[in-house]
């Protein structure tokens, strides 16, 4: 009838809990995995910033690896990553999805910082961004030749993320 182990049960439960806490210390509770990963990039047709009569749709990129970079002129982090996006654009076509921006401000922003984008579709009401599961600006998607989303980068890209993740992946997909 003497069940000695039962007295150690609280300790055991606590040890397991501490394990979980330790494992979650270096995790960001707000960093969400993309639901669109390894799924076809949602189709859309949006007018271009430079020329609202013309439009862009992902189908036009079929057969090549490309990046979709979500940006806005009101977004401070976009400014900080812009030069790096320019470098990336030399290796791979980058499409800049301009989210809920004012056309004049967005054009001025590109004129000031340079325009690395192959095209800049304007997502005025944020609907396309929702389809891509975007929840912050900037975000960058890597889309393969078949039009499947292979990677999503949250927040501004960095030298390190480009060299360690983005470029190797892009080269692999391009091969």
């Amino acid at each position: 009838m003497k069940k000695q182990w039962i007295w150690a049960l609280p300790l055991a439960v606590f040890v397991v809990m501490v394990g979980f806490f330790a494992a979650s210390l270096d995790k960001d509770p707000r960093e969400l995995p993309s639901q669109r990963l390894d799924k076809p990039a949602p189709a859309f047709t949006l007018p271009l910033l430079e020329n609202p009569q013309a439009s862009f749709s992902p189908a036009q990129m079929h057969g090549q690896v490309w990046l979709l970079n979500v940006w806005a002129s009101w977004c401070a982090a976009c400014r900080s990553e812009h030069a790096l996006i320019g470098q990336l654009a030399k290796q791979v076509p980058v499409v800049g999805l301009n989210q809920q921006d004012e056309a004049g401000a967005a054009r001025a922003w590109l004129a000031e910082l340079g325009n690395p984008y192959l095209a800049t579709p304007t997502d005025d009401d944020g609907r396309v961004s929702i389809d891509y599961g975007v929840y912050g600006v900037p975000e960058t998607f890597v889309i393969d030749k078949q039009g499947v989303i292979r990677y999503r980068h949250l927040g501004p890209v960095t030298e390190q993320s480009i060299n360690d993740v983005l470029l190797p992946l892009i080269r692999k997909l391009q091969a």
Binding site: L32, P33, Q35, R36, I130, G133, Y135
Partner: peptide
């Protein structure tokens, strides 16, 4: 919503 943002 969950298709786009997950169960979160």
């Amino acid at each position: 919503l969950t298709e786009r943002y997950g169960d979160f």
